[in-house]
Design a protein around this nucleic acid. Sequence first.
DNA 1: CTAAATGCAAACCATTTGCAACGGA
DNA 2: TCCGTTGCAAATGGTTTGCATTTAG
Lengths: 167, 167
Amino acid sequence: MSEEQEVFLTHIQKKGLKRTAQRDLILDVFLRTEEHLSSEDLYRLVHKEDSSVGQTTVYRTLKLLVEAGLAREVRFGDGLTHYEHNYKHQHHDHMICSNCGKIIEFYSAELEAIQDAMAAKHKFQVEQHLLRIIGICADCRRAKRDQEKQRQTHHERILSATAKSTR
Amino acid sequence: MSEEQEVFLTHIQKKGLKRTAQRDLILDVFLRTEEHLSSEDLYRLVHKEDSSVGQTTVYRTLKLLVEAGLAREVRFGDGLTHYEHNYKHQHHDHMICSNCGKIIEFYSAELEAIQDAMAAKHKFQVEQHLLRIIGICADCRRAKRDQEKQRQTHHERILSATAKSTR
DNA sequence: CTAAATGCAAACCATTTGCAACGGA
DNA sequence: TCCGTTGCAAATGGTTTGCATTTAG
């Protein structure tokens, strides 16, 4: 049994809940992906392996995973809630390409330090922070430079990028 | 006419749209508040002054204000979209108190510089960025500390009373 | 006169909830 | 057995859309 599975089991027992085949499967599929999946993404993957599992159970289990510290909610502003691994994973931030939807993870100790300093200045006790940089990734910039074609509006770009990445 | 109203009018004319009493009123009410209002908040305020204005128009007008560069969308993770002034307002970030909901705006040039440096490192062209720090504000921390202190002195009193009586 | 704007109601869509059947401990 | 769990359908709640009517230019 993996460390994560043990963490989950411990959490479940501590809360007086029950271990079920569905929860095991959902955790298993979640652990096998390294993406920022939405509940729907995960549901589709799980459903492929066991078509009897319902969406509701995926929603409910994701909440449990967050509680257990195994998953972290991330919102990219596309209206969906995404989840990423959170167990023994260092905190990191995201750059999101508004053209292709690609997500780049990055970490900067300086950035963290300054955030903490700003918080301290306001006597604010940090629980969590979220930094999201939206723009155009290197690939899309190159592509654009290559063919300066008819351009969509900013809004349409975000919409189509979102549709591509999450649908 | 305020600068903002001129910006709005110019934007509207550039897009071949029409100036209406509703749009004027919505912009006016928006400019008179300094909060991070949700569409619903703004709707209620507008509705108070002219009950014939519908929610839909507020939603649609807020989008126009964003397009015109007068407003900026901010999502705090409560499921609502909030809007803040964006015209000649310096970019800033937010600390959100998870206890009382208070929002503290702050700005750090260093923070901006490091973000830009991180983006450059990934050859990422920044369009916008969003930083949200969630935690407990100074007031709520003090309130909690006071409570704690009271509980402690209460505890001490019991201890000393017990000590006396058992000596 | 004509295209845009409005307000209402209905539609959307991700997420949540009520509930009867099911299943771990 | 006793509760927690599940999946379905229905509800929710913020936001969007269809449409008939009104209105700015």
